[in-house]
Simulated scan of single mutants.
Amino acid sequence: MRIAQALRTDPLHYGQDEIELSCSIGIGTWSSEMIENPDGAFAEADSALYSVKSNGRNAIATAPPLVGSDGATSHVLKS
């Protein structure tokens, strides 16, 4: 979140121009069942990102937590 805030508040200087930046971020989740195939977590993050973009951009969205077959809830991906 700090990176997104910095991008939004600190314009990019290019020569004499000042360019305001925006940042759209989608955050996915993972469960222990995804260790061997994390594609589902990436698909969730991608879906959350497109949700942000379709609602005007410049925001952060998270996918809803998953509940695996073992009853464990998912965790937010940090990187």
Rank of each mutant, 00 (worst) to 15 (best):
V76N: 06
A45W: 03
R8Q: 02
E33F: 05
M1A: 10
M34C: 09
S74M: 14
S47H: 14
P65V: 03
S32W: 11
I19R: 00
T9V: 11
S51N: 10
A43K: 06
K53E: 08
E20M: 05
K78C: 15
V67D: 00
G71Y: 02
M1S: 09
S74W: 11
D39H: 07
V76A: 13
P38A: 11
G68Y: 10
L49Y: 09
Q5N: 14
T29S: 04
L66W: 14
E20N: 13
I19V: 03
D39E: 14
L49I: 02
D46F: 05
Y14D: 00
A4H: 03
G68K: 15
G68R: 15
V76I: 12
S51H: 12
D10N: 03
I3F: 12
G68L: 09
L49K: 08
D39W: 03
E18V: 02
D10S: 02
I27V: 08
R57V: 04
D17H: 00
R57T: 04
T73K: 12
A4K: 08
A45G: 09
S54C: 07
I27M: 07
C23Y: 04
S47G: 10
P38L: 10
L77A: 14
G28D: 13
K78T: 15
S79K: 10
A6F: 09
S31H: 09
G71E: 04
T62W: 05
G15Y: 02
I25A: 11
P65H: 04
A63Q: 04
G68P: 08
R8K: 05
C23G: 03
I25Y: 12
L7A: 14
E36L: 01
G68A: 15
Y50T: 01
I27S: 03
R2N: 10
